[in-house]
Amino acid sequence: MVDLERIKDEARRLLKEGEVRGVIGYVQGPKGVWAVPALIQNPDDVDRLIWNPTCIHNLSLFVVEEKKDQARQKEPDKRPLAVVVKGCDSRAINVLLQEKFIEREEVILLGISCENSGVVDQKKLVSLLHGQKIEDIVYGDNGHIVVAINGERRVFAPDEVLADRCLECRANFPVISDYFFGEKIERESAPSFTQVEEIEKMRLEERRRFWEKEMARCLRCYACRSVCPMCYCAECVVDPISFAVEPTTSAEEKAKKIKWIEKSPLLSENFVYHLVRAIHLAGRCVDCGECERVCPEGIPIRLLNKKLEREALRLFNYVAGMDSQAPSLFSTFKETDPEDFIR
């Protein structure tokens, strides 16, 4: 079992001794039991930290946000940030290190093992409980999730309520950390690519119709991009800001500006957006599932990432985020890389 008090003790010490400028962790949110991310800077606030099956967010996103924020400050506090990381979050940190977006000294990682459980899928839980108000939610034995509802305790097996990505997770403990809480339990995970294979089994036209139905709903709100720790580019090709039109921009310059895709959510443009997104995340997506979770339209975005995750594994034996020292998927090659598709 993860001992929350030990996490708090470490966090408090780090803050008191001034070793870190803040601790990014989970606290209870305004909506009942659901955890929300928080930046804690005062040792007295450390008691607000929580750890339970609703600690869903990938906190490495806030490392990225903080880094960007620091770049805008005149005299940024150079001390590291302490961050609570689960397995998937730690893999995201590895990718950020691998790409040299952050340096190792910039973070102190409070790694938490999900042991034989994970975090819940809010939708699964809400539908199982028919929307009744959850009073408390904690880890039980053997990865079970214990929910208090109307003063009663209900116990759920992991595969009933955990997020799909947790059930399929192959490293449910931090792969990089400075402190490690809980036990490193190698547990059985569900086959990772079942849903991808289901799509592959469809005929081509069926696949097209399947995706058209999904893509047609995309609002291009870019929530999926905003929540992704790997989507840190200062400028995205789908809405280039540095090509912004200013009062002094001449008609000729305007005509020359590159517009890769239309901003309006047309079906074709949505397809291109999602393809660009998937490709740019190939070998970088750690399957934290955040993009899919925040999509207001319930578009199965993970299925695109998973497809490339599987191809990277199958064709290049590459898994994202396992090693911050290894070359990234696209910055290297092997003589033996497959080329049977090339004429």
Partner: peptide, 24 residues
């Protein structure tokens, strides 16, 4: 020297992705 080797990797993934969303 090896630009085409990098291309080969990238294009291999794109080649897989396009039919996955229904493009011939």
């Amino acid at each position: 020297i090896k630009g085409n080797m990098y291309a080969r990797r990238r294009m291999a993934l794109l080649k897989e992705l396009l039919p996955y969303i229904g493009l011939e």
